[in-house]
Design a protein around this nucleic acid. Sequence first.
DNA 1: ACAAAAGTGTTGAGGGTACACCCATGG
DNA 2: CCATGGGTGTACCCTCAACACTTTTGT
Lengths: 234, 234
Amino acid sequence: MHETKAGPPAPVAAHEVLAVIFQIRQRRLSVLLWRRARPPYEGMWVLPGGRIGATEGLDESIRRQLAQKVDVCDLTHLEQLETRGDPGRHPNGRTLATSYLGLVPAGTDPATPEDTTWHPASDLPPMGFDHAAMVHAGRRRLRAKLSYTNIGFALAPREFTMSELSGYYSAALGHDVAATNLRRVLLRRGQIEETGESVPSGRSGGRPAALFRFRARELEITDAFAVLRPPSRE
Amino acid sequence: MHETKAGPPAPVAAHEVLAVIFQIRQRRLSVLLWRRARPPYEGMWVLPGGRIGATEGLDESIRRQLAQKVDVCDLTHLEQLETRGDPGRHPNGRTLATSYLGLVPAGTDPATPEDTTWHPASDLPPMGFDHAAMVHAGRRRLRAKLSYTNIGFALAPREFTMSELSGYYSAALGHDVAATNLRRVLLRRGQIEETGESVPSGRSGGRPAALFRFRARELEITDAFAVLRPPSRE
DNA sequence: ACAAAAGTGTTGAGGGTACACCCATGG
DNA sequence: CCATGGGTGTACCCTCAACACTTTTGT
């Protein structure tokens, strides 16, 4: 079954990896897009990525290809999203595509080539192929994970104030998040901790803000079993 | 970037689709496996599936291939899990694999070929390739979705009593689920409703059990925004 | 002193588990 | 009338949103 012994020749197809790279920029969730210079979809915007190499894994491949677009040091999170393989998705012939969700922390400004720019995720330009659907899948995934994992670490810089962090959450979720309650939720879950330092207040006054950091910088599920959790005792 | 204009020939690879098919059988979460008749991994157990056809989509392909193993009418849910593409995952040459999670309702007994049998998911036989990892991914996905979606509809038959349903949940989750509370949770969420009929009690007596059904028979998220939900008013 | 921004205390609602209790049926 | 299994009522707990109130700074 895995090797068809007879019958039609083994079907093979081109395979590409693509990345939905998000960053909070100017208080908006933004995605890194690349402007296509030739048909099909010439002049439209597409996700960065490309064909996989003959001997590399999928994760490996998207990391390699992103290194040309985004400094790898800036990429704080990367996870697989979905694979699309409708026969008609690529006009030039059968091509499967595996998309990834990547996150870059706010505050950094990775050097990107001229033909790639950041676009607000809520106001996408005309996009080629099925890439717009992938952006939406990425946004859904991010929003969901913000509520039950520590994925915020990948959106925020190493250290941050609570009002900054609530800004990142608001931008990603698309609605207001009160800094005062966010602080308690993330502290109770053990996601963040105080650094002990604080930021002097600006010219308009105000109490100086304490600095926080995420305790872990890799994905952890902090709120599993919200319901239907196992019984407390046997 | 999508079409390498020069350089090495376009890298292509074989692509297969595989399915982690779960069903609750004898109060255990079971997975349908196929016994390999030839190397590599001869005699070990693998997931049903195979190479995709030249002109079919991924979902289409796995559905077609499963039709030979499991009656399609019995397949109440199917969703993509993950794609694996490590160069070394297939000894006979580069092969990418996209795995799916499929569910068959309890009570049915789909006709399966001789070389496929059901195995308890918590006690897997020796498995070939990276298929055991896919089974675990499937089980994690199922467990997670049981707590925030109506995916139970795909595990249960059309109509069921609450104690039967709690049995399915217990088997899938791996811990006890009290029928009395499950009833309230699922009713409040609008996932299930009474049919109005009931099942006569057995020879040992007891009050007759009311029959329920799921209101929807496709996946719905019923408990989104458990936390960090949008503000109640603007 | 006053405005501004950060942080704390408190209240109330919602949703879930646990468990005692009531109900319907067979022997 | 008792055992058995289903169904209801309820108490408690935990988490979070909302909001008033306090603290700390700049001008």
